[in-house]
Design a protein around this nucleic acid. Structure first.
Lengths: 251, 251
DNA sequence: TAGATTGTTAATCGATTAACAATC
DNA sequence: TAGATTGTTAATCGATTAACAATC
């Protein structure tokens, strides 16, 4: 997450487009909760209702919403449609963002079809792959196009978001091409740390990392008192021959 | 993330199996970086080297590693293999965790094939779906089985991790079944907030939320000074007829 | 010994939460 | 007016970071 902005020193001047990252990450959750309430014909909701629907506590929700403005009514609650629109506008999904997906393997294929992706606010304008065997294949109502056409597509369709679903190997190169072509937001599914220049935002979705975090907690359940673990080892003395993990964790 | 633990009050008694969540979330990243270094034949690395490979700063990396113990050598750095094993053990991927995937649509299908999933430490023991048309289908060397067999499979294979790749609708019910069957960690790809009892850990991967977070920042790039936005609206007065977002954001 | 680098301390920053005055 | 609920304040908690003493 890289942000090139002019921040003068001094007390944090809130209001100057300063919504905390943690709050930004929850706005889409609130948006979804509001949509669900709206679909159920609910016109008004209290912070408590909304918080329950979003899976957070109400204090946090009210604090989060307070960064956007005063959209509620004391003693009453929030108008669902009104708040939904305000949040959608704040996030920026009242307009449509053009997206390209690069790497049409299993995952890219799945994302191309994924309806949740078709969430209002985003439009997949191209599926790209460098493999000639894939180019031309139809997926839904789209056709896989040659990665070589990237620059042209980004310019024509004013693409600002790129999704990388290639293997780890080519991911950095793909990323560089995307950035050079003018893409300024990247969602990375490849299991590598990508580096991007300032001004380009990058987010990462990583399957095996999520599983490993679960494993960590899982380990601490089964064992409980049974595993005091980390048996206060003496400093290693050049010893490198340790029980092997088995060849290579990580993808 | 629910943790049922006995925490006495007083100063934070570190060492009592208390690795901060933020650190836990980075351990898999370090593990992957170490594996990459190891694959490149690098035997020793400084915190600076490692931090670069992991995409963090070296102070944070050293602080994180300090929660695990003293695995480095002052003046020298870290033995790559040794540290890799220690982190793998701490995370719990020196053993194998049995995983079931529920919901074999596009995404479940992709995950079933996803090699990154096959990361050492995890073993997919079943692909489950309730749709009779899918049951029996072969995916790689596995066959889709009936969701009705869940309980049996969880018991037989001692499954502790469940991955939910169903649509939003059935996700909570699937989750309840998983929990009732004895699964205590869940990775949820369905765009809903799942509720689970204490003692069950849940993590969420949400495509459209990631895209929306990117959109938020993207919006603040293009516009910059051009969008003072949030035009200090008067409190709404029951007005519900606002420009529609278009039907429903969120899946 | 001199140089390098860890492990830890302490300062700072950001996020969460409870509580309540403002106000519908 | 009495009851409900927001928006905000202030306290607390956790995470990040710089700096450096310890030590190889």
């Amino acid at each position: 997450m890289t942000r090139a902005s002019s921040r003068r020193p001094g007390p944090p001047t809130r209001t100057e487009r300063g919504i905390p990252e943690a709050t930004v990450a929850r706005l889409p959750v609130y948006l979804r909760a509001l949509t669900a309430l709206s679909d159920n014909g609910i016109a008004t909701a209290s912070s408590e209702d909304l918080a329950t629907a979003a899976g957070v506590n109400s204090a946090k929700l009210r604090k989060d919403l307070s960064y956007l403005g005063s959209y509620g009514t004391r003693g009453v609650g929030y108008d669902v449609e009104y708040l939904r629109y305000q949040i959608a506008r704040e996030i920026g999904v009242t307009q449509d963002w053009a997206v390209v997906i690069v790497g049409i393997g299993n995952l890219g294929h799945a994302l191309a079809n994924y309806s949740g992706f078709g969430t209002r606010g985003f439009r997949i304008v191209a599926l790209l792959d460098a493999d000639p065997d894939l180019v031309g294949e139809r997926i839904g109502d789209m056709e896989v196009r040659d990665f070589a056409q990237l620059e042209e597509i980004v310019e024509t369709d004013r693409v600002s978001i790129g999704v990388i679903t290639t293997p780890a190997g080519p991911a950095q190169e793909v990323c560089d091409r995307l950035v050079a072509a003018g893409v300024t937001s990247i969602l990375n599914f490849a299991p590598v740390v990508l580096s991007v220049p300032d001004g380009v935002d990058i987010r990462k979705v990583d399957l095996s990392i999520e599983l490993q975090i679960l494993a960590y907690h899982e380990q601490r359940k089964s064992g409980e008192a049974a595993l005091p673990q980390v048996p206060e080892l003496p400093a290693m003395n050049g010893l490198t021959d340790l029980p092997s993990v088995g060849g290579g964790v990580g993808a």
